[in-house]
Design a binder for these strands. Sequence first.
DNA 1: TACTTATTTAGAAATTTGTCTAAATACCTA
DNA 2: TAGGTATTTAGACAAATTTCTAAATAAGTA
Lengths: 84, 84
Amino acid sequence: MNSLFKALNDHTRRAILELLKENDLNAGEIANHFHISKPSISHHLDLLKQAGLVTAIKNGQYITYSINTTVMDELVQWIMKLKD
Amino acid sequence: MNSLFKALNDHTRRAILELLKENDLNAGEIANHFHISKPSISHHLDLLKQAGLVTAIKNGQYITYSINTTVMDELVQWIMKLKD
DNA sequence: TACTTATTTAGAAATTTGTCTAAATACCTA
DNA sequence: TAGGTATTTAGACAAATTTCTAAATAAGTA
C-alpha cells in the first residue's frame, strides 16, 4: 500500500495514468506531454512501475507503457472499510 | 485532490484514520497509540484536517477528532474513471 | 491566583522527493 | 562497423517532509 500511495502522491504521475488510460504510450510520447525532462519522466515511470500501476514492455528501441488498475482495488477496499 | 493524496501518503496518518473509524478520540488519546511525540501527532492531525479527512471539535481542554470519509468519494470517483 | 493538564506553535535536524544535466546502455539502420 | 534514436542510470541540488525539543496558549482546579 505504501508504494501505491507514494506513487499517487504526485500530479505528474497521476496525469501519466490519465494519459495511459486512453492509450498505451512509449516513454518518449509520455514525456512529450509534459514540460519535464525525459530522465525525470523515466523516474516517475519507475515509481509507477514499482507500485504496479503501470507495466512496461520493450518493443525494440521503444518501451511501451500500459496502465494496470487492478492494484487500485486494494485501495478502494481500504477506503470502503473506513466508510463502514 | 492534492492535499488528499498528500494526507494519505503516510502510514501514521492512515493508522489515525483507522483508529477514528472505531471511535472519536481526542489528541492525547490518539498520540497514546503511537511512539511518536505529541507535537508530531498534532502535525499529522493538521494535515488530515487540511485534507478534510478529520474534523476537530473543542470540548473544554480537549479537542475531539472525528473521521470524515466523504472527501474520499472524489478519490474513488477518480479511480473508477481510470478503470473505465 | 497559582498550578496542572491538553494541545499547538516554533524552530531545527535528518531524510526523502522532484528535478536537472551528463553519461551510459540498447537498439536500429546505412 | 559507425552513427543516430530511445531510454535509463548516476550524481547533484533545492524544496518538502517527518520528527524532535522547548516554549506558548488555553482550560480546569485547588
